[in-house]
Design a protein around this nucleic acid. Structure first.
Lengths: 180, 180
DNA sequence: CGAGCTTGGTTCAAGTTTTAAACAAACCTA
DNA sequence: TAGGTTTGTTTAAAACTTGAACCAAGCTCG
């Protein structure tokens, strides 16, 4: 079939998005590298861990939240472990399982660098958006997310990660912490 | 000063954005790697080149458009040159300068893979947005862009890259091509 | 039960990218 | 012409990613 090219509006939106996301990720990485000694992805790992009651999460669940491959996560956690931010533990009910647990030191790093991170997110993004735009951004983001992974993979709409079998055992729900 | 944490709305928007941009960039990279044998950034380089009348751009101008460092661009162009998609030429008026020129082969690759790229962008993004949301996305993206580079660097609001001294000479304006 | 498939996670090897710092050449300005 | 700036590259060291291969543990079903 003949290609449906982007309309001028779409083209402008696309350009703006690509440029913005590049700049944003750059700014974030730079700031976190500076203040916390790690890139954004790694910081996000600590943040997610800090949000569970037990401050620990199974590798697969973590990978799912982060939208990265298990292999990639293994590498990342290895580095975080080497730096003392995370400890690996065995999962009690599933002997195959590994649980990544936030250490005291990891928590400390998180608390120490969270303010700067939030400040950067504000300065780069939210300080320039109206409340309506914040809502729009969430809606747009959610749609993309749904399109890109609700699509081919999980047909079940209610298989929430934090209620999954594997998780229910080794860790649990949500809460609010230093997660930006 | 005490940190202004993100509001729940902002937090949701932020999460949605981070997840979406990760997934999107992944999808794009995968598709282009598959169809064009190069990641998104490299494809974008070719696309930008294809849009100038002369199909060539100075390294610095290109780096600026792409929002990456010159060093990083040097590496990227080296690879593209090795693959025959781009040729390096000397800039006539500024003997320091290098101009990256799109080769016929590069143009062919671009034309061959553009439909697939556009299709991916549509399937991942625009097919799921209303026309209003397309406008919102552009507006939000533009604001981020402005925040992150209008800020510290160029105080002059009208120093458009394609009108800059160095550019006016070796290359020029805009047009529409295979640039997604 | 136990063969055979699936899942969780790691390892390995290779390659790709990225960064930062240092440079040389060419410009530019007084 | 000296001194500062801009261009673009080089270099060396890391950091990261990928994909395939693998092992061990779970699960399913005859």
């Amino acid at each position: 079939m003949t290609t449906r090219w982007l309309t001028p509006e779409e083209q402008r939106a696309w350009r703006a998005y690509v440029a913005a996301s590049l700049l944003l990720e750059d700014a974030l990485d730079r700031q976190l590298q500076q203040d916390a000694g790690m890139p954004h992805l790694y910081y996000t790992i600590l943040a997610y861990l800090s949000e569970t009651p037990e401050r620990r999460l199974r590798m697969t669940d973590l990978a799912e939240k982060l939208k990265i491959t298990r292999s990639r996560l293994t590498y990342a956690v290895a580095r975080l472990e080497k730096d003392g931010h995370v400890r690996r533990e065995a999962c009690r009910w599933d002997k195959r399982g590994t649980v990544a647990a936030l250490t005291e030191e990891g928590m400390a790093v998180l608390e120490r660098s969270a303010p700067g991170h939030v400040a950067t997110v504000r300065a780069s993004l939210f300080d320039h958006l109206t409340p309506e735009q914040v809502g729009q951004l969430e809606e747009i983001g959610t749609r993309i997310e749904r399109a890109l992974q609700g699509d081919g993979a999980e047909p079940a709409p209610e298989s929430l990660p934090w209620l999954r079998r594997s998780s229910t055992s080794c860790n649990a729900g949500e809460s609010g912490d230093a997660g930006a």
